[in-house]
Nucleic acid binder design. Structure first.
Lengths: 293, 293
DNA sequence: CACGTCCGTTCGGAATTTCCGAACGCCTGC
DNA sequence: GCAGGCGTTCGGAAATTCCGAACGGACGTG
């Protein structure tokens, strides 16, 4: 598997046919066809269903496309960073918060120290994120945690010395469909939820799931929904209740399509993490200063 | 910039010299040197300071190393995710043979290629089974047929190009109750059965019924029994004769509760079917090899 | 139903890339 | 001064990539 094949693969997906992709790539269709075949053989999977109207992705092809985008994008980022001599600070964030919280941090930093360049990397896995920080591949990471120690939410940080600073609280809300039997009751206790179905997302490693484990006993039924959007939708339809960050459900709470249940929930913190021995890194103290409230 | 160059680059960093990296990579030092030079030219940066003791990273090289690790690691993650989830071969079989023949095929495959995962789907209808193969929802199907072409038994295969391999014969036996007037007579002809009642099962689409149609004239009375078990029971009680796979009546023949009539019967074959254009499917050739006698 | 068009694939051959081995220059240590 | 170890250059071999021609399949049109 080489980047050249991924570019070809991605071009076939984008253009829909080997023939059009070949035109776009400046290659003959047979060359494109052969590259795809070679890639499939090296991976030992079929990436496309061939049809008279062109190429349709298989399930494996869908998964490959996600990776192809990422790898090609990062290869281009690599090229840019390596060739430009600017030492931008490399900030990693989980995809779950990259869209919502990273722009706020960047805006604040840009306002106070506009000369500091920041390069953002979205990661799927917190472990990978922290490993990248520990190994020096990222300068800082932005993630959700709570408590006084790194990992108090329930995950195991790497053994390398990591320091952190909490930038902002991230309140959570336990929400349910309008008219839910528990809505309107203040001072709920976890025991009051006995018999409820608690929607959780895909992964026990997710911050929200960990927050659920901090809040509720194991005997409350967990139902795996997909991501945050699915959880919200199911909650709206009365299929269960769920614990989500307030920012994710603020609109629904305002419009009445969801109601907040009166159970105290743990707050998460937006936490910046870096290697403790890297505080001499140019710009790090600046970002710490600039990014905090 | 290609992944192969990044692997070479990373090896030079790890081993410290072009010469040692070449040994590790199984290449000549000149090949390694040229790959590094080519990479540097494509990025338009110098990645190493050359010295008498080997290669030392420049600043750009340090930055490149971070990316090289990430890209190579993610390429490997991509490979694993794309191939693993697709690795299970989807095998469909009719329920009528799922219990009797599929375990044999799976056991044989597991013995020879234990790393190939198979996901079994039992189907009720052969048409559905073959449609699933034609449409790519199943990788292979296991069914009963005979003759040199798909469908020679009497069914109509889909129009998509399907290939097949016969794995094993499935002999049939024409059986009747002990003491039947035709028992003990060798060299029976179909005409000898005039006046007999021929037990058949529920569906003309069933392989056994189709085998009956291949063997007997339409003027021999058909009596619909239920499934194989019901047919066997009725034959034992002298309610008719029936044509069943030997494996289904072996015990009765041994114990004498049924007797075999001396009429040559067509043999069925246990047939593996797949899309002809899917032979690049990982594991398919392996399963073809492993599953055949 | 025949034909034309568009699709992807195969295959032999040409073009290009990669690799190799030999030769070389540079630097260091003895 | 010399030997050893390093990386580089270069001509040639080997491997890979690409091309064009030919083919078969599917679909749409008359």
């Amino acid at each position: 598997m080489e980047l050249r094949q991924l570019r070809t693969f991605e071009a076939v997906v984008r253009h829909g046919t080997v023939t059009d992709a070949a035109v776009a790539l400046g290659l003959a269709p047979s060359s494109v066809s052969e590259q795809i075949r070679t890639l499939e053989r090296s991976l030992e999977v079929t990436l496309f269903d061939r049809g008279p109207k062109g190429m349709r992705l298989t399930g494996a092809g869908e998964r490959m496309l996600t990776w192809a985008h990422r790898l090609l994008s990062q290869a281009e980022q690599a090229r840019r960073e390596v060739t430009e001599q600017g030492a931008a600070l490399r900030l990693g964030a989980l995809e779950s918060i990259a869209a919502t919280h990273v722009p706020v941090v960047l805006a604040r930093l840009s306002e106070r120290r506009p000369e500091i360049g920041v390069q953002v990397h979205a990661e799927i896995s917190r472990d990978t994120l922290l490993d990248d920080v520990a190994a020096g591949r990222l300068d800082v990471a932005l993630l959700l945690d709570n408590g006084d120690t790194l990992g108090a939410l329930g995950f195991e940080p790497p053994t390398e010395p990591l320091a952190f600073l909490d930038l902002a609280p991230v309140p959570l809300a336990l929400v349910a469909a309008p008219g839910h039997s528990l809505s309107g009751r203040p001072d709920l206790r976890p025991a009051d939820l006995r018999g409820e179905r608690l929607l959780v997302n895909n992964s026990p490693a997710c911050s929200f799931w960990m927050a659920v484990e901090q809040t509720f006993d194991a005997d409350i039924e967990r139902v795996r929904a997909g991501g945050v959007a699915v959880m919200r939708a199911w909650a709206q339809q009365g299929l269960g209740i769920c614990l989500l960050p307030e920012f994710a459900v603020a609109t629904d709470l305002d419009s009445g399509s969801l109601v907040r249940l009166g159970l105290p929930t743990p707050a998460l913190s937006l936490r910046l993490v870096w290697r403790a021995d890297r505080e001499t890194l140019p710009g790090l103290r600046d970002i710490l200063y600039a990014a905090s409230s």
